[in-house]
């Protein structure tokens, strides 16, 4: 089992009111799955993704990722897990502006094990050309289309060869053709064995996944 959640609870304290975001969430995701998490805004799907991405900690419950107990780790250990085991893909791409595509892809390598800069560069270029961006290595995000930017972001998510990719509305800022391209790419990566967990509110996008988890009021339905 790649991901194992047991009795996860998370409450946000908003001024004097406590807003429960996750209530007794338990689920398993095996290696090689392609899961879409669906739900309306406020259903807790983003909170769940943040917990899966080790960006946030649950108030109670246990989370195992790739055999490791995540709950209880300190900030540095979480950073290392994010670096090695998880690739993030965001709705707004989150590429560094005025930085070339290949440098954007290299970014996670700076925070991993020491590596020669030539090796870093080679790895980034290889991934970019695999994703069909041979001629765009030196382009800045501003010179790329939305679909191309998201491909650069996916290359960045893949550069440390993580077992898990977490995508937060990856097609939210794309036209439908680019969106279909990105989904096709996710399916291809998934066929190669990478586990993908994706948050979306569009049923059209969710249908690319093999499994759909629907959330409502902080619970999996």
């Amino acid at each position: 089992m790649l991901i194992s959640l047991r009795q996860i609870n998370k409450v946000y304290h908003m001024e004097s009111v406590d807003v429960p975001a996750l209530r007794n969430v338990s689920t398993d995701i095996s290696a090689g799955e392609f899961v879409a998490i669906m739900g309306h805004s406020g259903s807790g799907k983003s909170t769940l993704l943040n917990l899966l991405g080790c960006l946030d900690m649950p108030d109670s419950g246990s989370y195992h990722l790739d055999g490791e107990q995540i709950s209880g780790l300190d900030a540095d250990a979480l950073a290392t897990i994010r670096n090695r085991k998880i690739g993030f893909v965001f709705q707004n791409f989150n590429l560094l502006p005025r930085t070339t595509a290949e440098e954007n892809v290299e970014l996670p390598l700076y925070y991993g094990l020491p590596m020669r800069s030539a090796d870093r560069r080679a790895r980034a270029r290889k991934l970019l050309s695999r994703l069909g961006l041979e001629g765009r290595m030196k382009h800045h995000p501003g010179q790329l289309s939305g679909g191309q930017q998201q491909r650069v972001a996916i290359a960045r998510a893949l550069v440390n060869q993580p077992p898990l990719i977490l995508a937060d509305e990856p097609t939210g800022n794309l036209d439908s053709r680019s969106a279909d391209d990105i989904m096709a790419l996710f399916q291809e990566l998934n066929r190669e064995g990478i586990t993908i967990v994706m948050v979306t509110h569009e049923p059209d996008i969710a249908r690319f996944a093999k499994r759909v988890i629907t959330m409502r009021d902080g619970e999996i339905t």
């Binding site: 560094l96 996670p108 925070y111």
Partner: peptide, 16 residues
């Protein structure tokens, strides 16, 4: 701020 958030997500530690 966004760049800092991104770097943290990609595995930067606070001291980085």
């Amino acid at each position: 701020t966004r760049e800092i958030g991104l770097r943290l997500a990609l595995g930067a530690r606070r001291r980085d």
